[in-house]
Design a binder for these strands. Structure first.
Length: 259
DNA sequence: ATGGCATAGCGACTATGA
């Protein structure tokens, strides 16, 4: 089966591309992030017509996560245990579901904005809660993966030029330590193939010709438990989906499983 | 030191993203 995660940067603006991609890619399960619409505005009928059930948590203009599945959808859980709030609100950043033989979590980790911004400790707190939340699924027999936009480059190789990002979020030791704690719960980074160049970036800023110049980041990850990891036969970033007018600034991360 | 580009929202601009 084929599982994918993709930050689509607005479901409304990207619907045609999402429908086209899930069909041509033949994805069985798709984790989406940054819906940027309310739960009630998620086009579940369009996904149903394409053969997919939908679990979604949207909250309007920002954030929003979903899971599409054509292999069943059960045991849906919104948010994570102990999820911190920001500005007194629980943001739509996590949804988990069992899809046939696998359990997947669609995650949109807070950006952090700036290391001096309140959003930064919020990001770290979210990751700390995630590490505790993931422990049960990570050690279970059911194949499980926490997938999504982690907004962290795990290593200096996961960014086009780390020197250009000195002092910014996404590459700090605090963030990498928080990510390592999530992995220490029993989840391993499923490292994808690059379809072009040497590194499998998943995000390129719209500005500055960053995509043509391959100034990218690898921030979209699939963290898998042993049962999931053992079933992986291939993983790659579909950078072709980043091309052309109307693309998201993220490309889908695709994982194939012998399940 | 800042913006670039893209998105949504009652909008003629701002906030957010990474």
């Amino acid at each position: 089966m084929r599982v994918a995660t993709w930050n689509i940067n607005s479901l409304k603006a990207r619907l045609d591309r999402v429908l086209a991609w899930i069909e041509t890619a033949g994805a069985d399960v798709v984790c989406l992030q940054e819906l940027k619409c309310a739960t009630a505005d998620v086009p579940v009928d369009a996904f149903a017509a394409a053969g997919y059930e939908t679990a979604a948590w949207g909250s309007g203009r920002w954030n929003g996560v979903a899971i599409l599945s054509r292999v069943g959808l059960a045991d849906v859980r919104q948010g994570i245990t102990g999820q911190p709030q920001f500005a007194d609100a629980a943001e739509a950043r996590a949804i988990t579901a069992t899809c046939g033989p696998v359990r997947v979590q669609s995650l949109y980790i807070p950006n952090g904005r700036d290391t001096a911004d309140p959003h930064f400790p919020y990001k770290l707190a979210f990751l700390k809660a995630l590490a505790a939340d993931a422990a049960a699924d990570a050690t279970g027999d059911l194949p499980f993966a926490a997938m999504g936009d982690f907004n962290i480059c795990p290593t200096d190789d996961d960014i086009w030029d780390v020197a250009e990002w000195t002092g910014t979020t996404h590459i700090t030791a605090d963030e990498r330590d928080a990510l390592a704690a999530v992995q220490a719960a029993g989840l391993e980074d499923v490292f994808p193939r690059a379809l072009k160049y040497d590194r499998p970036f998943t995000f390129w800023d719209y500005r500055n010709l960053d995509f043509p110049k391959n100034r990218g980041l690898r921030i979209d990850l699939a963290l898998a438990n042993p049962a999931f990891k053992d079933a992986v036969t291939d993983a790659y970033v579909d950078r072709n989906e980043r091309k052309g007018k109307g693309a998201s600034d993220h490309a889908p991360l695709v994982v194939d499983l012998d399940l």
